[in-house]
């Protein structure tokens, strides 16, 4: 059944807002696609709401069209973080924020390595390690503040789980 509760719509809107802000913010320090991934990872999604998967897929395509990244790049990232979150839920990890943070950190490092080697081998372009690691580090640093804000909102105002 399609779940159109206002609480879910708020989070969809937050994600659309962050992705859309790409046309305003053009910074080498913050990658809004990665920040969206962080929010997807931090949010406590409804386990039985299948529309979330489609929304994340479509948001990824929207991000790709807007930013001109290859098709499937953002949607695979969004769904990857969503799946990891689901998997952690299944393994009862979410109660421990530190373990979740370490998993997120490892994911970011893996993602950075894949990104770097893809550009290096497919596009034959040795991009600067320092410049490209900055947005990943920024997202890692933002983990605890965003986790705190999202948890605060979800605990106080909404119950989507």
């Amino acid at each position: 059944m399609i779940d159109f509760r206002i609480s879910n719509l708020i989070f969809y809107f937050i994600l659309i807002f962050i992705i859309s802000s790409n046309i305003v913010f053009n910074s080498i320090y913050f990658d809004l696609t990665l920040i969206s991934c962080l929010i997807i990872y931090v949010l406590r999604w409804n386990e039985t709401n299948w529309i979330i998967c489609f929304v994340l897929f479509l948001l990824g395509i929207y991000n790709d069209i807007l930013v001109s990244t290859p098709f499937g790049y953002a949607s695979s990232l969004f769904l990857c973080f969503y799946l990891i979150d689901r998997l952690e839920n299944y393994l009862s990890i979410p109660s421990n924020t530190n373990i979740r943070f370490i998993i997120f950190l490892l994911l970011m490092l893996i993602l950075f390595s894949i990104n770097y080697f893809t550009i290096y081998f497919i596009y034959n372009t040795p991009i600067s390690l320092f410049i490209n690691i900055i947005p990943f580090m920024a997202v890692i640093l933002l983990y605890y503040p965003i986790d705190f804000i999202i948890s605060f909102i979800q605990n106080k105002y909404v119950r989507i789980k």
Partner: peptide, 21 residues
């Protein structure tokens, strides 16, 4: 229902990956 959502997410993830790779 939760497993079905999980399977759907995996399917969409692989579709995205195929589009990208």
């Amino acid at each position: 229902p939760s497993s079905r959502v999980f399977i759907l997410a995996i399917i969409l993830f692989f579709i995205s990956l195929i589009l990208f790779l």
